[in-house]
Amino acid sequence: MFFLQSLLSGILTGGVYALAGIGMSLVFGVMNISNFAHGDLMMLGMYLAYFAFTLLHIDPYLSLLLIIPTAFLFGFILEKVFIHRIINHLHQNQILLTIGLGLIMSNTALLAFTSDPKILTTSYSSSAVHILGGISLSVPLLLSFVITCGIIGILFIFLSKTTTGLALWATSQNREAAQLMGINVAKMSAIAFGLGTSLAATAGALIAPTYYIHPMVGHTFLLKAFTICVLGGLGSVVGAGVGGVVIGVVESMSSTYLSSDWKDVVVFIIFLAVLLLRPQGLFGKKGEQ
């Protein structure tokens, strides 16, 4: 009973983590950049969903139709203006640039929206469905999970069936070779970063109805997204999807059977163990680092 409740709520929460992880993994795969601004991009998605809901009265899930293209454009421009300049730099400089961009985003949000946390209350915010006599599942989390699965499916088809998708995939496999084959890798990078941004913003919008919105919220999800990426194998979309669910379940199980204040430690230990024992992650190929 405990076990099932814990497992199911872990899987549902993990779904949203997965989406955040996939965005980061995609950027990493195509551009070979660890994006430390990823959490702050999620934060922007949360605010977009919040303002769409309070000002335009659009349901947060429906507002995704607005948020996805907006965030894509924002990411695309961000890449064209800043990120592409450091694509061949040292890793540490890439990390520091994205940290700098993240600080600018979160602190501008702080100036613009103040530090008051915003709560997005929908009619179904605290409703749940009860199954199997006693196990309760949060309605907004269920919805988020279904949408996440849908987005992952679409993304998978996009990457494996369309020309742009295949070009992205080729770039992530081998940047130089892709360039020699006539793929515009600069454009692919911008598209990848745009996609990564819109996935981050989507994850933010999906979590907004069950969470709260605050300029500094990115930090919480940044480290989770990294853990998920590494677990699934940096650059692997499917891996990140599974990694997200695994992390959700691990967190949930550690709170149930260990203690909720140690659950992050468990996650970080798993993170280090994966780095040491299987640095290519669960789904990555050997030598991909």
Partner: peptide
């Protein structure tokens, strides 16, 4: 012994993870 086996991105990420474990331990 953990992080020096790793390079590039992984080194930075692992150093954060170790520091966070130390922080959470001191907190708990």
């Amino acid at each position: 012994s953990i992080v020096f086996r790793l390079r590039g991105h992984y080194f930075g990420l692992a150093s954060i993870a170790v520091a966070e474990i130390v922080r959470l331990s001191a907190l708990n």
